[in-house]
Nucleic acid binder design. Structure first.
Lengths: 256, 256
DNA sequence: TGCTCAGTCTCTCAATTGCAAACATCCCAA
DNA sequence: TTGGGATGTTTGCAATTGAGAGACTGAGCA
């Protein structure tokens, strides 16, 4: 195992368990404790953790610190599964909207061989589908939200006035009984509201980490979509809620 | 086994196993470790992997970071110089349009610290500027031309109706006395014609390989722009022509 | 409070391994 | 023949890891 792999593995453990133990790590990786301490030194310098006597704890600030990379990729496997499920819902000849974010990007990766029209307001989704011969790609245009790949604003809204689509897949940042579905910016909400006007069907996508949390801008209540795709670790009370409200819940395993 | 075969085999292994080991690879291909390291250097430059002591690990970013992919561009050095010259023309507070293509992408790479508004119909240019805090990025939207990163069509034209810009940089595919400036598709011509209506100034950019050749769709004659940026190997007859027609020619060295 | 002691940390040194740069060689094509 | 690209060889340097010595920490206890 390379040092760099060990480091990223430590980061992963740290992310999941919030703390690491020098002795445990040294046994896990079969290296001496000295090496582990040196690794922790490096990660401390990068701001990921704070060393303590005997181990280290995660530095929560590192999430706000742009230098200390994003760690949302921990859900990449879940997102891939969600992408696959979503892809199965899309039929030949349809026009679909893919919202912005990595979950919708995973949907894009699973539909490359279909014959459909894809409308998106995410630069990377457009880019991802550029070689797919069966897919007509339409990008809404708009203002690029700083540090993201999401297009919003006037041009996006204008573009979405003249078209109609069969299904819209919307990635959300928060799912919550009280605040409903939430995303990071109000501008995105505006775009998605317009999508609701022109789409036959709304499908909400988001891995289980989105549940019970709330982002900045409210999209609507949990009943705004009749279909939700997530993975199987979604809390039971949501499963119950969706079932009681005739909202179809698709998870990485069977529908429950 | 040819070097290129070895490289693509390494990519394949990397993709499957997420990591490669210098010693293992050198045994597998029966070449020295030096050769493997040189291979890994190349792949690292292309962004496929990250070298580490003893081997390399796959660069997950290379999936999400389009700019890391297939970075084999002839004339890349020329384009970089052109990008730098173009960047010098752009002043704080201006609104500029960057057309599609790798030459304009090089312009984008040189203006990241400015405080300006950038309008573009190229997905990658938008993406490239997404982190630049001083830059407001507006993407025109539109239909994505198959296998490119260029947006054209109704949405693009519509978006370009309501705005005005100071300078527009247009990359061309062909420069020729008889056919004038040419690009690859008629749809692009439509976009650029609209740009001519809303821009104070048109600047044509293109390295010397574009001269004396012709692409599919005609943009206009050589006098449609009052400024042209290229590199110093441009044929003399064009230098003469531009001089005689009061078109300012900027090259990788001084104006001639 | 101060003591004790096991556990932990840091420092230095050394061995191993990997690396980069310079130079040599080979091969193919102009 | 010559020149350039790819590959191999050599050599000195750098990075990584571990070992051991000594210092530090902190919980328990007198």
């Amino acid at each position: 195992m390379f040092a760099i792999e060990r480091l990223s593995k430590i980061k992963e453990i740290l992310y999941k368990q919030k703390r690491v133990d020098v002795v445990e790590l040294s046994e896990l990786f079969s290296v001496t404790e000295v090496t582990i301490r040196r690794d922790l030194d490096k990660l401390e310098q990068e701001g990921f953790l704070i060393k303590t006597y005997g181990g280290a704890v995660i530095n929560e600030d590192s999430f706000k610190n742009p230098l200390a990379q994003d760690y949302e990729d921990s859900m990449i496997e879940e997102k891939r599964m969600i992408g696959k499920i979503a892809a199965q819902m899309i039929e030949s000849g349809e026009a679909v909207f893919l919202g912005s974010g990595t979950t919708c990007l995973e949907i894009a990766r699973n539909i490359k061989n279909k014959k459909i029209t894809v409308v998106t307001n995410d630069l990377l989704i457009g880019y991802e589908l550029r070689e797919s011969i069966g897919i007509k790609v339409i990008v809404t245009g708009g203002d690029l939200i700083q540090s993201t790949t999401t297009l919003v604003g006037g041009f996006a809204l204008q573009a979405l006035k003249g078209i109609f689509i069969n299904k819209a897949f919307i990635g959300v940042k928060g799912v919550n009984f009280t605040s409903g579905y939430t995303v990071e910016t109000y501008e995105e909400v505006m775009v998605i509201q317009q999508i609701r006007n022109i789409s036959n069907e709304i499908v909400i996508v988001g891995d289980h980490s989105k549940f019970d949390s709330t982002a900045f801008a409210r999209l609507g209540d949990l009943q705004m979509a009749k279909k939700v795709i997530t993975n199987k670790q979604v809390p039971n009370e949501y499963k119950k809620y969706f079932f009681e409200h005739q909202i179809k819940l698709y998870t990485t395993f069977e529908f429950e």
